[in-house]
Structure formats: structure tokens, C-alpha cells
């Protein structure tokens, strides 16, 4: 075998190795180990107890309550199967709204309430002017719900 052919084989093997590593990495991301937990997972005690973790889902419509005398905010996070109550003190991001995706970071209290120290709004990939928007359907909410129900199904 000539030196050039040897190098070619070497590079070929390297690329196969990288392909395998990518596949593994993607599979690892696939099982989305713990970027966030859905309410169903939290209620099934899959989230780490006494530890800060992220809770993700949709803000239940009509659940948002702002206390009039403080910055304390109550809302529910749901995956359309299970629901977790959240308490947060602070300013909510611009895109936070009922029925939309949210990722919150905090601890689960003994009372079953999630005490959030950070609330992030998720948004989808639809970029349209207000007047066109009504004609397009959003798949985002479905996406978040599906995430939750799938992981729920897997845990059962």
C-alpha cells in the first residue's frame, strides 16, 4: 500500500469514527437527559429531590395570578396530562404568556409547589407580521405537549 492510500484509509476510518461519535451524541441528546422535566415526570418523582432543576411545559390558561402587594407571581405549568403549581418572585420575560411554552429553574418544595428562581419564555420559529399571523396555525404548543406526553409514556 502506498503512503497516500494508507493516509486515505486512515482518514476514512477517522470519518467513520466521527460519524459514530455524532450518532452517539445525537442519541444522547435524543433522550434529552435532563435539560428540563415535564410536570408528569416531576409528579412521577423523576426529577432530583432537594436539587435545583428545570421544569418545562405550557403555562395553563387562566392560572396566572399576580399578588397585588408584591412581585410574587403564581401560575401553573402543564403538559396537558399533569400540572405543577409554580411560585416566582421577579419580573417575567416579555414573551411570557398563558398558553405559551416556559422553562423555569428552581426547587420542588415539600408542599408540591415549584419555587422558581428563574423563569424563561420559550418561543417558536414563526416570524410573521401581526396581520398574517392569524392565518397560520402554530404547531408549537402541540410540540411542547408532545414532548411531555412522550416522555410520560416512556416512563410508564
Amino acid at each position: 500500500m502506498k503512503a497516500r492510500q494508507k493516509r486515505l484509509v486512515f482518514i476514512g476510518l477517522a470519518i467513520i469514527g466521527i460519524g459514530a461519535a455524532s450518532t452517539l451524541a445525537i442519541t444522547a441528546l435524543n433522550s434529552n437527559i435532563s435539560y428540563f422535566f415535564s410536570p408528569s415526570q416531576v409528579l412521577a418523582n423523576e426529577a432530583p429531590p432537594n436539587h435545583v432543576f428545570r421544569l418545562g411545559g405550557l403555562v395553563t390558561k387562566g392560572s396566572l395570578i399576580r399578588e397585588s402587594d408584591s412581585l410574587k407571581i403564581h401560575f401553573d405549568v402543564t403538559d396537558n396530562a399533569k400540572t405543577v403549581k409554580v411560585i416566582y418572585t421577579g419580573i417575567l420575560p416579555d414573551l411570557f404568556s398563558e398558553g405559551k411554552g416556559v422553562v423555569t429553574k428552581g426547587k420542588l418544595g415539600a408542599d408540591g409547589v415549584f419555587y422558581a428562581e428563574e423563569v424563561l419564555a420559550k418561543h417558536d420559529e414563526e416570524y410573521v407580521p401581526p396581520e398574517v399571523a392569524s392565518t397560520l396555525k402554530t404547531a408549537h404548543a402541540e410540540g411542547v405537549t408532545n414532548t411531555a406526553t412522550t416522555s410520560n409514556g416512556a416512563s410508564n
Partner: peptide, 27 residues
């Protein structure tokens, strides 16, 4: 890995803060 995570074909497998990429839903 980056390309896949942004162009994630299946929302069921994409627990992330970052939105996916979908050119068909842009004005």
C-alpha cells in the same frame, strides 16, 4: 450535533430552550 439540535425533525425529542429552525414559517 449543532445542526441536528437546531433542525430537530421531531419536537418530541427536543427538550430545549432554543427554538427549532423552520424556514417555511418565516414571512
Amino acid at each position: 450535533v449543532i445542526f441536528w439540535s437546531i433542525n430537530c425533525p421531531d419536537p418530541n425529542q427536543c427538550a430545549a430552550l432554543h427554538q427549532r429552525s423552520n424556514l417555511t414559517k418565516i414571512d
